[in-house]
């Protein structure tokens, strides 16, 4: 009985964390859209929501993080999207999720959060460009990929540094004590 309680408790905590992280990610995307940052590359953005995805991947199982990514994408689409922009963001989000999950799985000791978030950001760009490519039936859009790669490195470093500060701080909270790997 005691053990069953413990398990239910952990499952509950997981759900709570997923919900909080998804909410924070949505707020971060909103904040990001308010920053009038024109980096000279169309479609480039900071990717602050990636902070939450990466942190979630670190603490929880892959399927919880996937849930969080889907929730975040759906909520952002409801708030300021149209159906077509939802298709693009979900492609980007899924590409980025798979890439980061894979790297955390195989390369945890070779790459730090910075490297993983760079790959996540770049995968997000590639996912969106691929969606646009299929949608518009042209491969010319990949013209912008090299510039996006450079921006991806810069924003990836920023996001990675943020995660490196966020994870130790969250680890001190009692909510996360069952999930320290």
């Amino acid at each position: 009985m005691q053990q069953l309680n413990e398990q239910a408790n952990i499952a509950l905590k997981r759900t709570v964390i997923v919900a909080i992280f998804a909410a924070v990610a949505v707020v971060l995307s909103l904040v990001e859209s308010l920053i009038p940052l024109n980096m000279g590359v169309p479609g480039a953005k900071l990717g602050l929501a990636n902070i939450m995805v990466l942190t979630c991947l670190y603490f929880l199982r892959a399927r919880d993080a996937l849930m969080m990514v889907l929730l975040k994408t759906l909520l952002t689409a409801f708030i300021f999207g149209t159906f077509s922009s939802f298709l693009f963001s979900i492609m980007g989000a899924l590409f980025s999720f798979v890439a980061m999950w894979f790297l955390l799985w195989v390369g945890r000791d070779k790459l730090s959060f910075i490297g993983i978030s760079i790959v996540g950001g770049i995968a997000h760009n590639i996912g969106q460009l691929t969606a646009a490519c299929i949608y518009f039936n042209t491969s010319k859009i990949f013209y912008y990929l090299p510039m996006l790669l450079i921006m991806g490195v810069l924003t990836g470093i920023a996001v990675g540094i943020a995660v490196r500060y966020l994870v130790p701080s969250l680890s001190k909270l009692s909510l996360f004590e069952n999930f320290l790997g």
């Binding site: 390369g107 790459l111 730090s112 910075i114 490297g115 760079i118 510039m147 790669l149 450079i150 490195v153």
Partner: peptide
Amino acid sequence: MKRGDILLIGLVVVIA
């Protein structure tokens, strides 16, 4: 930052 990160950044920048 680990060595893998620096390698990765270098690789991406060179490709771009």
